[in-house]
């Protein structure tokens, strides 16, 4: 299901994708910038929140600045017939922030389950990774943890 956006929605997205203005009336500031009445800006943004075009309006922290220094993308080669059940269970672990099924690319990449695990250091990530390994144990053939060592870019969506 895809939501149809018109020129007003697109103007609002373009005016806010790099950030919401830090002014007392931020939606009015957006409205002035794109020359649309503030009531319309607020009504459209509320509608986009309601239909999921906007996931949320809020702060995106730099997890390194907050002391979350170890960021491990754990990847797993899980038997196809069990991946959907097991993926749900891995995604439900409180320390997993993102969890997806993705295609294998044989022979270069055998892994089909991705779970992001964060910790203050790598030991913390490894303790958590062991819990995932135990959960997947009988149906997992291989796994790896890819630690991030540098953010090369983090701008988010631009349309």
């Amino acid at each position: 299901m895809s939501i149809k956006l018109d020129v007003i929605d697109r103007a609002i997205i373009q005016a806010t994708q790099s950030g919401l203005p830090l002014t007392q009336r931020p939606y009015h500031t957006v409205a002035e910038k794109i020359d649309i009445p503030p009531e319309v800006v607020m009504q459209r943004m509320q509608a986009m929140l309601d239909n999921g075009v906007i996931r949320r309006i809020g702060a995106v922290p730099n997890h390194y600045s907050l002391g979350w220094n170890a960021n491990g993308m754990t990847v797993w080669d899980v038997v196809d017939e069990h991946i959907d059940t097991l993926g749900q269970q891995v995604g439900a672990l409180e320390f997993v922030s993102h969890c997806y099924r993705r295609p294998r690319i044989i022979p270069n990449w055998p892994y089909n389950l991705f779970a992001m695990v964060h910790g203050r250091n790598r030991d913390e990530v490894e303790v958590k990774t062991v819990q995932i390994a135990e959960l997947l144990a009988p149906h997992c053939r291989a796994h790896a943890t890819l630690y991030s060592t540098k953010i090369l870019k983090k701008t988010g969506l631009r349309i």
Binding site: Q17, S18, L157
Partner: peptide, 22 residues
């Protein structure tokens, strides 16, 4: 101070007919 990388709306491009990929 770069403690926040961004402040504002988070858009889900898939809801607008777009796509994400890794």
């Amino acid at each position: 101070q770069k403690v926040l990388t961004r402040f504002g709306p988070m858009f889900q491009i898939e809801r607008m007919g777009g796509a994400f990929s890794l």
